[in-house]
């Protein structure tokens, strides 16, 4: 099975800092793939490099069989990649409706997806006319994910969705991600290993800007030492 997204040995610089020094990963179609690593390992930077927000200086990014390195971020996104950034960067001055509408790539995207979105996140229907800034943290996170679902995306890059959410909300979020993964492939970054380990099929582990391990999530769960060493997490 050909991978939907393939990242081959990318190097990314921010200013003079060499942040990514060889990250490689593969995301097969129809899966949830987790990107693991400690704080500051370069997970966010990897996602941004894929999307072209911090274009990699070396290496290849292949999406849908096309090399997309060097294209502008909006072109890459328009090929079918949705981004749910960390700290749930929704537009606080726009209403919930506008937050969704702005993500439309063709007229009627929102209308077509409304049912799907509202079954995943029923709260949003109630809050439809409220400014995004007045939503709670959990609701903002839902909105950020919903926004990425409005256009016909093939791949979602989701960064730290559980950060700062209450456990009960995390449960809800997990359910939502699992359900949406039936429709769209997901590359998931999250510090909450409990969550990622239950959602993801495969993982890639990065440390200091390099891919150091990868494999099936089930195998990783059998290696508590590795988990402790790379993630500092205990299961």
């Amino acid at each position: 099975m050909a991978a939907l997204l393939e990242v081959q040995d990318i190097h990314t610089f921010i200013g003079q800092f060499h942040i990514l020094q060889g990250v490689s990963l593969e995301v097969p179609e129809g899966s949830i793939t987790a990107l693991l690593g400690r704080n500051g390992a370069g997970k966010t930077t990897t996602l941004k490099s894929i999307l072209g927000l911090t274009p990699p200086r070396e290496g290849k990014v292949i999406f849908l069989g096309e090399e997309i390195g060097g294209r502008r971020a909006y072109e890459i996104a328009a090929m079918g990649i949705g981004y749910v950034p960390e700290y749930r960067a929704i537009f606080t001055g726009l209403t919930v409706e506008e937050n969704l509408r702005i993500a439309e790539r063709r007229k009627g995207d929102l209308k077509r997806k409304a049912d799907f979105i509202f079954t995943l996140f029923p709260d949003l229907k109630r809050l439809y006319r409220l400014p995004g800034g007045q939503l709670s943290g959990g609701q903002q996170q839902m909105l950020a994910i919903a926004r990425a679902l409005v256009p016909d995306n093939r791949l979602l890059l989701i960064d730290e969705p559980s950060e700062g959410l209450a456990p009960i909300l995390i449960q809800e979020l997990m359910g939502a991600i699992r359900r949406l993964s039936a429709e769209v492939t997901v590359l998931l970054v999250d510090q909450n290993f409990q969550m990622t380990s239950r959602l993801a099929d495969r993982y890639f582990m990065i440390e200091d800007g390099r891919t150091v391990r990868s494999g099936a999530m089930a195998d990783l769960l059998n290696e508590p030492d590795v988990i402790r060493r790379y993630l500092g997490a205990v299961i």
């Binding site: 927000l53 971020a73 996104a77 981004y83 950034p85 537009f91 726009l94 506008e98 926004r147």
Partner: peptide, 14 residues
Amino acid sequence: RAGVQDSAMVEALG
């Protein structure tokens, strides 16, 4: 209005 807050995110929407 969205770009005033975060133009990179607007670009990431395509």
